[in-house]
């Protein structure tokens, strides 16, 4: 019995190793229409690419074990076609874009419950969320601000107070910034941009800098974590950016189409650089103010159930699940930090 168990473990370890080495290319959207029993997610732009990689690698892992029956993992991007068909035999619905939209979709009951099982979220639980939603942590990210890599009027560093004053409309020109040593800004209008309203990165950034009411000059619009929007190609633009997503795009080789850093590069806050010398998230920067946990949100009733779905959710997202035991390489490759408490849950 022990020999069998040991053999099984060796086989599993080998399979895991092979998957890690020979993992396939992550798909933007599932290449097949998921089956009814599969685990399907929508939501955050920040974590869409790493979830796509998880999907590819987890499904290959199951196949490598000869498991043809367990539910597979699929994830739909935040952007793409206007509608998606999440599972076979279900009606198409509007593609949720962002953490908030994903969570809303997860909880939709009218006119019908949507065929999704989890929402990707780059923000923590907040007032207004349902207590029946469970946020399952899997990695750590940080959010900073970005500006044009060359020719920008922005300094290399801003304080939290500067960012607050820029986004609440108190500072409208660069020369109003007077607390950055060696920087004298021109008397030129600052163009503060934010991602679309359902963006978890947007809500996290505004909370971090303490802004509840936006200045009249703040522009909402560009897709988050993309520096390819033509509006951002401006010497006076600043734009929040996921540090991890940036690392994945620029240093992990995970840029694709418009999902790229483009003309933008990351800047410091309070004199702390968001990146280490080896181009990973700076753990000091990822403090509780500018660091954030990345989650997948599930319904508690399903998470705790002994059904096929409940078992599958825990096998994928739980403390002993695939992501927490095999996903470290994917997490690092896509620019994020692993967390010791992977699979821990929280709720509002």
């Amino acid at each position: 019995m022990r020999k069998t168990a040991a053999k099984l473990l060796t086989a599993a370890a080998l399979a895991t190793s092979l998957v890690s080495v020979a993992s396939g290319t992550a798909m933007a959207d599932p290449s097949v229409v998921p089956a009814t029993q599969d685990i399907v997610g929508v939501g955050s732009d920040t974590t869409q690419t790493v979830l796509n990689q998880f999907s590819t690698d987890y499904n290959a892992y199951l196949t490598g074990l000869g498991d043809t029956t367990s539910p597979r993992l699929y994830s739909f991007d935040a952007t793409g076609s206007a509608t998606i068909t999440a599972k076979a035999g279900t009606t198409a619905f509007a593609r949720p874009n962002g953490s908030g939209a994903g969570i809303t979709a997860l909880n939709q009951t009218s006119p019908s419950v949507l065929p999704i099982d989890f929402a990707r979220s780059s923000r923590a639980p907040q007032t207004g969320d349902l207590t029946t939603d469970i946020f399952v942590g899997f990695a750590k990210d940080a959010v900073t601000w970005s500006a044009k890599s060359t020719g920008s009027n922005a300094p290399a560093n801003l304080t939290t107070a500067d960012l607050k004053n820029i986004y609440n409309g108190t500072y409208t020109t660069w020369n109003q910034i007077t607390d950055i040593a060696g920087y004298t800004g021109p008397n030129v209008t600052i163009k503060p941009y934010l991602p679309q309203a359902s963006s978890g990165t947007r809500s996290f950034f505004l909370k971090a800098i303490g802004v509840t009411t936006l200045g009249a000059n703040v522009v909402t619009g560009p897709e988050e974590n993309e520096g390819t929007d033509v509006a951002l190609n401006d010497a006076n633009v600043i734009f929040p950016y996921s540090v991890g997503h940036y690392v994945g795009q620029v240093y992990g080789g995970h840029s694709s189409g418009t999902d790229a850093a483009g003309v933008l590069s990351l800047r410091s806050i309070n004199g702390v650089a968001p990146l280490t010398a080896s181009n990973t998230i700076n753990p000091t920067f990822a403090n509780p103010t500018y660091g954030r946990t990345l989650y997948n949100v599930v319904r508690n009733a399903e998470w705790t159930a002994t059904t096929t779905k409940g078992i599958a959710l825990r096998n994928i997202f739980g403390t002993s699940g695939w992501i927490c035991t095999n996903g470290a390489a994917d997490i690092a490759s896509y620019g994020f930090l692993t967390i010791g408490g992977c699979g821990s849950t929280t709720h509002i």
């Binding site: 967390i339 010791g340 821990s344």
Partner: peptide
């Protein structure tokens, strides 16, 4: 790191002793 650590008597560096597992609710 999600670990309970302790410093051995006479030493200075902590040692990882215990790790929460199973269902972790924060």
């Amino acid at each position: 790191t999600w670990k309970l650590t302790g410093v051995p008597l006479g030493a200075t560096a902590p040692v990882n002793l215990l790790s929460p597992a199973g269902d972790n609710q924060i």
